[in-house]
Design a protein around this nucleic acid. Structure first.
Length: 549
RNA sequence: GGACCCGUAGCCUAGCAGGAUAGGGCGUGGGCCUCCUAAGCCCAAGGUCGCGGGUUCGAAUCCCGCCGGGUCCGCCA
């Protein structure tokens, strides 16, 4: 709805309707700073120009209530009709509210952690960003598929195979068992360097498609993925497909990419096959001297496939892949393929330094999930509620806390993991939003008990607090649009927190159930609209909207 | 050596196609349950927006240089 308001403002401004100079503002519903930009060329003060523009405007929009010129700003205020339509649209669209009518096929690749052990708290930052983007893109109207790209051809998989052969899989959660074998195998390799040759042979056999090797690799990788899937499921993340790197060797795409590069005369043969890129210090090797391919070769093939099947494809990658991503993109462009859109996120480190699966130095996602659930249980266990429901609430609060903690931070911010913060549910977190939602539900439940009226929101009954809340509610589709355009899901988390805050302010100052009939009806409409926005919003963040807590 | 990211109160963070008094939260001190869920709300203290230049009527935001932290520069993935 807010998007419609913006459109109206642009239309009414006519020649001055430049979107670049429109700002959300605490002083207005929308403000234009165009007068400041024109001040110099017109040799007048911004204030004079703003006055003149406002004077000349023909405000023929039902959604614009008033326009003022103040301190050089042109301030637009929404009309009662806009507020009324906003609430009505929300109540009417209900679970669809927030949608945009965008169309297209989108692929989002995320997580894609090496299958050599459990996911750690760095990996799930990737998963949570990717999954949240997928949810928001789907809300925007796109047809979204999610992929987990499985690195089954790496040296680390070969080492894992070695580990499983030498030490077996101890009966824990499968991904943790794989990690143990992998860590042991790494130690073994350090003390017995002659085993390198065997690892090398495993890799060669696997790339050749040797049956026995394929069987061994498949078992190791599937075991790890089995555990990884369980972890992801626990935080409400599911992939549509797991795409194995090796597929692209077997299905001919690797050969096709190499051929395309060769036809463009881009390959320098010097034993190995090499591509030289302008602006990059180092050349890129795409085929080893021994004839085998490298990670980037298969990834190029994967992206050729993506080009053929999707309009937009987005990868979520750790910032350590920035150079890699730039090289990949450049090479794709050289053979006239579209590069992926990449969302980079900075590392999650421990207070004592960075994590490493190989050295067994990491906090697993499973450990985090377990501890946060315990903490949530401590808070709720004493309440008088059905045991099963308490479990369900503790679980939803814990998963919400984890997802929200990761998603609310801008991707480019480095994070240092801190247990005391991870286990703290006080405010600024999912539970705050879930709680606001539960409060709204509670009011509505009670209203139903003593007779729910036909809901009707009335603009002229609006207090400034109510107005502020409804304006925020109108922005949900606008926020979906921003995330789709900017690929920064944290702005949506920030938004939802704002809605919850505005609702809590409303809750404090506006009795609903005890208000006289007309106001009661009007406020119930606001509560219901807020409930819908909070519920839809939480779902976009992959967090369960609780009705009681 | 080269490249990228980050640097906002004790701690975490928003704002960064320049614009109206830099928003929140944690923590600290004080207050609010005869009233719709206190996982909430209110008040207070706390800021050289890393430092130094520059551009501009105007800079947390743009440019240059430093400093601090992180990351990357494999015939690894």
């Amino acid at each position: 709805m807010f998007l419609r308001f913006v459109d109206e403002v642009i239309r009414v401004l006519g020649d001055y309707g430049d979107e670049r100079f429109l700002r959300e503002s605490e002083h207005a519903d929308l403000a234009s700073t165009i007068a400041f930009k024109l001040a110099k060329e017109r040799k007048k003060s911004p204030k004079e120009i703003a006055d003149e523009i406002v004077e000349s405007l023909e405000v023929d929009s039902d959604y614009i209530g008033s326009v003022e010129s103040k301190n050089g700003y042109i301030n637009f205020f929404a009309s009662y009709e806009f507020l009324e339509d906003t609430v009505n649209v929300i109540l009417d669209e209900d679970e669809n509210y927030g949608h945009l009518n965008l169309k297209g096929e989108i692929l989002i690749e995320h997580t894609s952690a090496n299958p050599d052990g459990p996911l750690h708290i760095g990996h799930i930052r990737n998963s949570i960003i990717g999954d949240t983007l997928a949810r928001i893109f789907a809300k925007a109207g796109f047809n979204v598929r999610t992929h987990y790209y499985v690195n089954d051809m790496g040296r680390q998989t070969a080492i894992t195979v070695l580990g499983i052969e030498k030490f077996g899989l101890k009966g824990k959660k499968p991904d943790h068992a794989v990690a143990e074998a992998y860590i042991e195998a790494n130690k073994l390799l350090e003390s017995n360097p002659e085993l390198e040759e065997y690892v090398e042979k495993l890799m060669l056999d696997y790339e050749r498609g040797d049956e026995e090797a394929v069987e061994k690799f498949r078992r190791a990788v599937e075991t790890a993925l089995d555990g990884i899937r369980q972890t992801l499921k626990a935080i409400n993340v599911e992939h549509d497909e797991f795409v194995w790197e090796s597929e692209f060797i077997r299905n001919g795409y690797v050969d096709r990419v190499l051929k395309a590069l060769d036809e463009k005369g881009l390959i320098k043969r010097d034993g190995a096959w090499i591509i030289e890129l302008e602006d990059f210090e180092k050349e890129v090797v795409i085929r080893r001297e021994n004839g085998t391919t490298l990670y980037i070769t298969r990834d190029l093939a994967y992206h050729m496939w993506k080009n053929e099947n999707y309009e937009r494809f987005i990868n979520v990658l750790g910032a350590d892949h920035k150079l890699y991503g730039a090289q990949l993109s450049r090479i794709l462009e050289l053979i006239n393929l579209k590069p992926p859109e990449i969302v980079f996120f900075e590392f999650v480190s421990l207070p004592e330094g960075s994590m490493s699966t190989r050295r067994g130095k990491f906090i697993s996602a499973d450990e985090l999930i377990g501890k946060v659930k315990e903490e949530a249980w401590k808070i709720i266990s004493g309440r008088e509620m059905d045991e099963g429901e308490k479990r369900k609430i503790a679980n939803a609060v814990a998963v919400g806390a984890i997802r929200f903690d990761f998603i609310k931070i801008a991707p480019e911010k480095h994070m240092t993991f801190d247990w005391s913060k991870a286990l703290d549910f006080e405010r600024q977190t999912a539970s705050y939003i879930q709680y606001s939602h539960a409060r709204a539900c509670s009011i509505l439940r009670k209203a139903v008990e003593d007779g729910m009226p036909e809901l009707e929101f009335k603009g002229e009954l609006c207090s400034s607090g109510e107005r502020k809340l409804v304006m925020l509610l109108s922005k949900m589709p606008y926020m979906v649009k921003r995330v789709v355009e900017e690929l920064r899901p944290n702005v949506f988390a920030e938004y939802l927190l704002g809605v919850a805050g505005a609702f809590n302010d409303f809750y404090r100052d506006h009795p609903v159930l005890k208000a006289e009939a007309e106001i009661r009806m009007h406020r119930l409409a606001i509560v219901d609209a807020t409930r819908i926005v909070l519920r839809n919003g939480l779902e976009l963040l992959g967090i369960e909207p609780l009705e009681r807590m």
